[in-house]
Amino acid sequence: MKRQRFEIRFDSWYEILSRLLLLPPSASYVEVTEDRVEVRMGWAFGSRFPRTAIARVNPLRTRTLSRGVHGLAGRWLVNGSDRGILSLGLQPAQRGHVMGVPVRLRELMVSVEDPDGLTAALTSR
């Protein structure tokens, strides 16, 4: 499998705000390789973990009010939109960094431009 990059989805109003916060869409992505997954949202969030840690991939059916990077107790949301959000269940829990601070990831929810493509990339072997 070649390296595939999926852009994080941004609502137009949030794209303007995120650029002001130095979180441009160009630095916000999910990258999938044969054995690794990397999720970045500029300086605010980063994680790299093995594909084998992905226990499930599901679309998030509820709407979110917030944008950015939010989480607690192992559940983290990394989004620029309330559309196209996938929930990745991780087992065992993985490590991420929020503003440089290590956090535990049991569930990572991320908004992407192509949720079907990312789902296919993460579930194909």
Rank of each mutant, 00 (worst) to 15 (best):
M99F: 12
P115Q: 04
L108S: 15
F45Q: 05
A93Q: 10
L88C: 11
L118C: 04
A121M: 07
L105C: 12
V39I: 13
R67Y: 14
Q91C: 05
T33W: 03
R125L: 09
S47N: 03
P59R: 11
V110R: 05
D116S: 08
I54Q: 08
V37C: 15
L105I: 13
R51G: 09
G80E: 06
A120S: 12
L105P: 11
R83W: 09
H70W: 14
G71W: 08
V30P: 09
R56T: 15
R75G: 00
A120T: 13
R75H: 09
E107Q: 14
D116E: 15
D114Q: 07
R95F: 06
E31C: 07
G100N: 13
M41N: 07
R56W: 15
P50G: 10
L86D: 00
L90Y: 12
R36L: 11
V30Q: 10
R51F: 14
A73E: 10
A121C: 02
A121T: 02
P50L: 12
R48I: 10
M99W: 08
G71N: 09
R61W: 02
E34F: 03
D116P: 00
R75M: 00
G96C: 06
L86C: 04
G74E: 07
E31W: 01
V101K: 15
S26G: 08
R67H: 14
